[in-house]
């Protein structure tokens, strides 16, 4: 009996050129309403003094936490953690109350007004269960993201995490996020 999978993502920000291909790919793939996005790129303020300037671009999306606050606050049990570690929403149970949006420290959720629900990144389950890559990853010119099984020590993502210094966002909130960022 093989061990259960736990999907995670590694983001190499230094490769991100803020071209927003991932945002549009996700929008198309997941029918995300206009002006809403499941992933986005934070652009830092310009730092340093002229001419030694710097700027960072940070891709963001749902962190698929091990201990997700969104799951705990959900009054209907719509949000759940799948066996493979992906945090998903049962759209039939979701009543669109937005408690989860308040609870999420990453601000990763949005309201889909048309469907009356709250939605977010699913790692493109419709693609990954068919052996394809998430849309954001596949389309990226810089191949910023690595996606894979964190429980498999030989997977590309595990090897990269083992060989690079990484960090997660807001670990202090106790969510145990599963998106890792490489620190330069």
């Amino acid at each position: 009996m093989s061990q259960e999978k736990k999907y995670g993502m590694l983001i190499e920000q230094s490769r991100c050129i803020n071209c927003k291909a991932c945002m549009i790919a996700c929008q198309a793939e997941n029918n995300v309403p206009l002006h809403k996005h499941r992933n986005w790129i934070d652009e830092s303020e310009v730092r340093g003094t002229y001419p030694n300037l710097g700027i960072d671009f940070t891709p963001n999306q749902c962190n698929h936490c091990d201990n997700p606050h969104c799951e705990r606050v959900c009054p209907t049990g719509a949000t759940f953690v799948n066996d493979d570690g992906i945090v998903l929403i049962d759209y039939n149970k979701c009543i669109g109350c937005r408690f989860c949006m308040m609870a999420c420290p990453y601000d990763a959720r949005y309201v889909d007004k048309e469907r009356g629900i709250v939605d977010k990144c699913t790692y493109c389950t419709q693609r990954i269960y068919q052996g394809r890559e998430p849309a954001c990853l596949e389309t990226c010119p810089g191949k910023v993201r690595t996606f894979g099984d964190l429980n498999d020590p030989k997977s590309e993502i595990s090897l990269k995490i083992a060989t690079h210094r990484t960090e997660v966002k807001y670990p202090e909130t106790g969510t145990k996020p599963r998106i890792y960022y490489i620190i330069d």
């Binding site: 071209c19 291909a21 790919a25 198309a28 389309t139």
Partner: peptide, 9 residues
């Protein structure tokens, strides 16, 4: 293996 935002849109 890339497609930019324009291509996706």
């Amino acid at each position: 293996g890339m497609l930019c935002a324009k291509g996706n849109a």
